[in-house]
Write a protein that binds this DNA or RNA. Structure first.
Lengths: 343, 343
DNA sequence: ATGAAAGCGCTAACAA
DNA sequence: TTGTTAGCGCTTTCAT
């Protein structure tokens, strides 16, 4: 185990002072230096294999060049592309990311945020906030740059990047409506999450605009955005409203669960019941029936959030919009069929 | 932006020396302290909201309590479960992980390893090594604790955790053989990766043991473990050996690609050609035809690798096995059919 | 253009 | 049982 080469070593090797060495190796140097020392130091650094000690520099500059990325669960397929998007902008800027999974547990989230702060992260990209997230509010008020992704914290000025939930739900609703469906139920996501809430509101709005009465709408809320709760909520929907011909789901996993449930009771999607999703997660196009869904820009969202965080961290917070809404796109596949029910 | 509370602040607040405060707050303290100071300090820490500055402590102790996790690409579905496995053991030990994607580019890998070293990671879990990985060899020789996962570096003493490739390939081969297949081709993974190589060798061994002649075997190597190269390699296989009735693929993504190719030329899997995969990646069971594959213990592998790294980092390297082989399991689904070809 | 000196916040060897 | 001191490796202000 050979010891690392330090600035001091280079100073001894070149006969100049450590501070001079430091300056010579500083890429964005402002102080003037003689070409001679400069090249001498650089050559020595090269030869001895000098590598800067980021820990030491972090302590001195109070910048760790590290950001925290908080997500509910990396095994949820929509997150890996988002992370690659984040990486694509942060890595070239010299930042590294510490990724943590909250498993949607507020206590766990709180602990993880604390850990990130102990480690002195320069900022946080947060994709797992709840609507009234006090943990993150505190951190933000303490001066930590934060951007939320996919979700937002209510009544705060924390910048957020979301998808055009309303347009997405409208498009999904419209495609069902245009295929003749009138008994359209909503399999809603958790109301504690902004996505669940916004999509639910958009659904109601769409339905009303198409002339349906609020009282006639069947809406069942899933506790979590997963297949299990999708199955359960679908069963409740059909119990409450057996004449349902289409289920508009708050995301793909719920939709997958709903389709599983339909199959389990001998119904077919789309023949008996049409289903739509939201997100267009990876691999979805290989699963049968190929789900009609709303595609969100996953990688893009990561990129945009990271750019905003970058601005925040370098003090150009005046430039950043509090609200960024990314466009979505309806992907029509095979889970929606024309409705032949005689009403 | 309020300033962080430091040990010095606590020292002033309690009237004792910083070092005493440090001791009072050290969880695994060996020096004796009076109950009075202890509680006084702890109360002050609580009240003022003291949080230790890990950067400072890292500089002093030369331990960052951070590990690097190197993978080819997080969007490859087999990695998220592995990461959760790693997290499940490292997080309770106080470690955070910096995850980097190499995109299987050696130059990129080298740069990323350097970055991790600059940041002073205490160890690395590496899931993207190539067989003759000099970068990682150097790092290891420099004294950095390293464990490789899924793959191994040839001719080194770097501990590695792999799956029982041989048993897996044997099982896949046997199920094809038992269903009457005799014209079994191998869609091999890259020879530069230990998985590709080991699976290829196991295939040849299996075939020979079943009485096939090496010269008759059709083996086509894919350059990368992805669908695109799977499609291409499958086309080559059928060109070289049109009588092929089964393709044993080196992993799931290659198998998915092969099936896509078959479909594109009007052949059906499993009716016309049977296909097997390797890994059993998430969501595979929802894709039709449901792929018969070899399930590897993804989460478990992360757990084991992390445990070994933990031992290495705490100097108990005498306890760690260089080689750990995890058991695999054949998952029989719908992509293998009985062969009715008259030979 | 370069050197001197201080200090980021913490820990640990040594003293008392 | 507690205080003193030194220093991890770097950056930055001030002096020269």
């Amino acid at each position: 185990m050979k010891k690392r080469v330090t600035l001091k070593d280079l100073a001894e090797a070149t006969g100049v002072h450590v501070s001079t060495v430091s300056r010579a190796l500083d890429p964005k140097r402002d102080t003037p230096l003689s070409d001679e020392v400069l090249s001498k130091v650089q050559r020595a650094a090269e030869q001895l294999g000098y590598r800067p000690n980021r820990v030491a520099s972090s302590l001195r500059t109070q910048k760790t060049m590290t950001v925290g990325v908080v997500i509910p669960d990396i095994t949820n397929l929509i997150f890996p592309p988002i992370l690659r998007g984040i990486e694509s902008v942060l890595e070239p800027l010299g930042y590294a990311a510490i990724i943590v999974n909250t498993d949607s547990q507020p206590i766990r989230e709180k602990r993880l945020i604390e850990i990130l702060q102990d480690r002195g992260v320069d900022g946080i990209i947060h994709s797992a906030v709840v609507l009234d997230d006090t943990t993150i509010l505190h951190a933000s008020e303490a001066g930590l740059p934060i951007v939320t992704l996919n979700r937002r914290v209510e009544g705060s000025s924390i910048p957020y990047v979301i998808n055009d939930e309303e347009a997405g739900i409208n498009a999904a609703f419209a495609t069902l409506w245009n295929r003749g469906h009138r008994r359209i139920a909503h399999l809603a996501g958790p109301h504690g999450l902004s996505t669940g809430q916004m999509r639910n509101a958009a659904f109601v709005q769409s339905a009303v605009r198409h002339g349906l009465s609020i009282d006639d709408l069947t809406i069942v809320e899933a506790e979590h955005f997963d297949e299990r709760d999708g199955r359960y909520a679908a069963s409740r929907i059909l119990m409450l409203s057996p004449e349902t011909t289409a289920i508009l789901c708050s995301n793909d996993r719920l939709a997958l669960g709903a389709i599983e449930y339909l199959r389990s009771i001998g119904l077919s999607c789309p023949k008996d019941v049409s289903v739509t999703g939201f997100n267009d997660m990876p691999l979805l196009e290989k699963i049968s029936p190929r789900l009609t869904t709303v595609r969100i820009k996953q990688y893009e969202a990561g990129v945009v959030a990271a750019r905003i965080l970058g601005q925040l961290m370098t003090g150009r917070s005046n430039l950043v919009p509090v609200r960024t809404v990314l466009p979505v796109e309806l992907i029509e596949r095979d889970s929606v069929a024309t409705c032949h029910t005689l009403d």
